[in-house]
Design a protein around this nucleic acid. Sequence first.
DNA 1: GTCAGGCTGACTCTATGTTGTCAATCTGCT
DNA 2: AGCAGATTGACAACATAGAGTCAGCCTGAC
Lengths: 148, 148
Amino acid sequence: MAHSPKRKLFLDLVRAIFRINGLLLADGDRMAEGVGLTSARWKVIGIIALSNAGVTVPGIARALGQSRQAVQRITDVMQIDGLVSYATNPRHKRSVLVQLTDQGQQVYHALRTVQDPWAIGLTDDVPVDELESALRLLQRLIFRMEKP
Amino acid sequence: MAHSPKRKLFLDLVRAIFRINGLLLADGDRMAEGVGLTSARWKVIGIIALSNAGVTVPGIARALGQSRQAVQRITDVMQIDGLVSYATNPRHKRSVLVQLTDQGQQVYHALRTVQDPWAIGLTDDVPVDELESALRLLQRLIFRMEKP
DNA sequence: GTCAGGCTGACTCTATGTTGTCAATCTGCT
DNA sequence: AGCAGATTGACAACATAGAGTCAGCCTGAC
């Protein structure tokens, strides 16, 4: 059984991914809490902030690898809360662009003041090349899982 | 800014973890579907099968890093479906042990016949040492996130 | 033995996310 | 221009997961 240890290794990796996913959501909730957000909005606002021109709801969903319905619900609530606004999309009549309002940008900036030290603190003693190789491995797995 | 690239690298890793978590759940649903399970029950049945003597519901929750309420709901449904049974715990009067029934073991076995080729296929051309180092990195991050 | 603190089961509420469906719109090909 | 297929918004049903609460049981220190 040449692949048996590899199989166990992979399943351990799967369990670790489930575990760290939960921990990341918990940390996201904790960080976002201070500025009145949740981890789901934390994920969404990060994608919106990355794109200057504004993105569509399905675009955010594709970036996160989630269903557009889930993202739509998040952005709808964030629009009610005044964090994002819907702007007409010159390239698509129905699909509006999601943009950060001034308040949304302030919230994102406040988020960064918590998120950056968090990211730095967690990777304090982790070499860059280890991060790189782990990221490459995950992206490789993602690619293989997305194809079929 | 010596740590700026590392910060971006880590955030990319976070995004990859969110992405692969969703893909793993989708694959888990797809594999578990054939034997009448869902990805949540797939995760739970794996933990139960790993322990011969039976585990408590909070024990499963700790192994998965989830709330015991979430696990309790899963095991309750699985008990109704006849996959698991609750046995009295000699070491704790109220906290019962969750065990696989014969049917549960059959389902787990059927699951393995799908899951093992899946695991092997995904890691086909991935060197063992890359899996090991990625797993170590994630476990290191998990350890740091669990402490506080 | 006793008792404080921790663990567990049961319940509720809320948030998140997937799937399915339908109509309206868009895109690319002819 | 016109049409087939893909994309999008809107809505609904369902599964999953966390947080909070309460009462009952258990454990360990004394």
